[in-house]
């Protein structure tokens, strides 16, 4: 089976500082793959580069096409979608307008099925429907993450990239969000999940990579990684026991 996303030798540098070094990863259609690693390992940089938001070197093959030279907008219209760590919502616009803009590239293509996706997003997140006339800036942290996810779904992505969806959220909401993520797989969306919350991420993912100081140091099926002592060590410094 050919991969939906195949990344080879990807390096990203901020000036002289290389934040991601020669990363390689692979994601098959319909899978959830997670990249975990401690804060500052380069996870966010990796996603930003995949989305085309940062200049990078190497090769990114998506759905059989080399997309390295494409602008982010062109990647969006091919079905890539990033929900960034900072959410990047349109704070001074309504929830509904945020969702409408999520489907921007589909409006440009005169897609007639957008209305149905509104219903679907509101079904997943009834809270958004209640607040659809409210400004995005007035939402709570959890609602913002729902809106960010909803906006992403409105673009009808083939590959959804999520950067720290649990960041700053209370445990109960984290559970909800991960339930939605797991559910998305059923609809055929492939997901690349970047998380610091390693346990939650490995629970939903099929396969995982551990990124440390810009390099992929360990990879494997999630179940194996969850019990790999190197993962815990990379997170907690000297600790190599007592976690489990």
């Amino acid at each position: 089976m050919s991969a939906l996303l195949e990344v080879r030798g990807l390096s990203v540098a901020y000036g002289k500082v290389e934040a991601v070094h020669q990363a390689a990863l692979r994601l098959e259609q319909g899978r959830i793959v997670t990249v975990i690693g401690p804060n500052g390992a380069g996870k966010t940089t990796l996603l930003a580069a995949l989305m085309g938001m940062l200049p990078a070197r190497g090769s990114i093959s998506y759905a059989g096409e080399e997309i390295m030279r494409f602008e982010p907008e062109q990647r969006v219209s091919r079905g890539l979608c990033l929900v960034p760590e900072r959410r990047e919502l349109f704070a001074a616009m309504t929830v509904e307008d945020n969702l409408v803009l999520g489907a921007f590239h589909r409006y440009r293509k005169r897609d007639q099925t957008i209305a149905a996706d509104f219903d679907e997003v509101y079904r997943l997140f009834p809270r958004l429907q209640e607040r659809r006339k409210q400004l995005a800036g007035t939402l709570s942290g959890g609602e913002r993450q729902m809106l960010a996810l909803g906006r992403a779904l409105m673009s009808r992505p083939r590959l959804l990239m999520l950067d720290e969806p649990s960041l700053g959220l209370a445990p109960l909401i984290v559970r909800d969000i991960f339930r939605v993520i797991a559910g998305l797989r059923e609809t055929g969306v492939s997901i690349l999940l970047v998380e610091q919350n390693a346990r939650a991420a490995l629970q939903v993912a099929d396969y995982g990579y551990v990124l440390e100081t810009g390099e992929i140091v360990v990879e494997g099926p999630s179940a194996n990684l969850a019990s790999d002592p190197r993962v815990i060590e990379s997170y907690l410094g000297l600790v190599s026991s007592g976690a489990g």
């Binding site: 982010p72 979608c81 990047e88 919502l89 349109f90 409408v100 921007f104």
Partner: peptide
């Protein structure tokens, strides 16, 4: 939709790029 896209760019350029507004 284009008017909204312009407003979105004014509010949040990164967010606008991420939904495909160049």
């Amino acid at each position: 939709i284009y008017g909204k896209a312009l407003r979105a760019t004014a509010i949040n350029r990164v967010g606008a790029r991420l939904v495909g507004v160049s």
